[in-house]
């Protein structure tokens, strides 16, 4: 055995040689789970398509004026009432036609993006923060803390998502983006909390957490340095998939007339406007619907791709 000389010598040099001969790590950049996932994702068409779509949507939401010169609120009732789309006139106000008040559907679709993206992203951020914190505390401390928190989570889970949001929103006179965001967040954080709790419970048993405890590490160090980074992956995936759900929930509420309403712009309320002329002017309904479905699809595809990349069972 080549290591017999280990006991005989005080010099560490031969030990180092043996250790390196023991299949040293390949040279190159350090790789972590996230960097592995990233190199996986870069080669995935579904991720690339979804990422491109989301990027475009974010730019539209931030700078709608770049995409259309028309104002979504200019109504030309006499000249453009339910005028049909002119599909060859790309990016012009006439591209998607006009609605029953003579407003450009294309401009409204562009300006309606912001509501969906802002509400979807802010609900997800709030839910990620609150849900992760609550789930982490319940999972890590266990015992009666877990019992109390889990019952609260169960109670919230028992409320049907849309029905609950409707009940909350009806009690407000003015329903802006903030109110809708908070209503969705109040009902949505429980999913993340549950996933986080389960993830933390499995991570806190790991030997490296025990090792940190045996070194004398405090609770916060263990939570932030050891538990959270290792428990985050499934939560991120669930949050990405949920983001699509929040966008669709906002559109549903706006469609039902208890979300955003005129003069605020939202694909949901535009679909509501379009449904009345569905036989004579399908385009008023169809273009906001396509944008809505496309946006939700992009976020779902992204969540799916990220889950595949982060799932250690597929590695």
């Amino acid at each position: 055995m080549p290591d017999q000389n280990l006991t005989g010598t005080r010099s560490t040099a031969p030990v180092a040689e043996v250790a390196q001969a023991e299949a040293g790590p390949p040279p190159g950049k350090p790789r972590s789970l996230w960097s592995d996932a990233w190199s996986d994702l870069r080669r995935k068409p579904s991720f690339l398509i979804a990422a491109a779509m989301i990027l475009v949507l974010i730019v539209i939401a931030a700078f709608p004026g770049l995409f259309t010169s028309a104002s979504p609120r200019d109504a030309d009732l006499s000249g453009a009432f339910l005028r049909s789309p002119e599909l060859t006139k790309f990016f012009s106000p006439e591209w998607f036609g006009y609605d029953s008040q003579g407003r450009s559907v294309y401009a409204r679709v562009i300006y309606g993006t912001r509501a969906s993206i802002v509400i979807g992203v802010s609900v997800t951020v709030i839910v990620l923060f609150v849900g992760s914190l609550v789930g982490m505390i319940a999972g890590y401390f266990g015992g009666w803390v877990d019992a109390v928190v889990s019952r609260i989570v169960d109670t919230f889970m028992g409320i049907p998502f849309l029905l609950g949001a409707m009940v909350i929103l009806v009690s407000f006179d003015v329903r802006g983006k903030l109110v809708i965001t908070l209503a969705l967040a109040v009902l949505g954080w429980t999913t993340i909390a549950r996933v986080m709790r389960g993830s933390v419970i499995s991570v806190k048993q790991a030997d490296y957490v025990q090792a940190a405890r045996s070194l004398g590490a405090g609770t916060w160090r263990i939570l932030l340095r050891h538990v959270l980074p290792n428990a985050m992956a499934p939560v991120i995936v669930v949050a990405m998939v949920a983001l699509g759900g929040y966008i669709s929930a906002e559109a549903t509420l706006s469609y039902l007339g208890i979300g955003l309403a005129d003069p605020a712009m939202s694909w949901g309320s535009d679909i509501n406007t379009g449904k009345d002329q569905i036989r004579v002017a399908l385009h008023v309904l169809i273009f906001p619907s396509i944008m809505l479905s496309g946006t939700i699809l992009a976020f779902l595809m992204m969540g799916d791709a990220v889950r595949d990349a982060l799932d250690p069972k597929l590695r």
Binding site: S32, A206, D207, Y208, A211, A212, H226, N230
Partner: peptide, 15 residues
């Protein structure tokens, strides 16, 4: 101090 049984789980993979 302690040395753990399983070297695959006793080191934090994110550090």
């Amino acid at each position: 101090q302690m040395v753990f049984q399983d070297p695959y789980t006793s080191l934090n993979p994110r550090m």
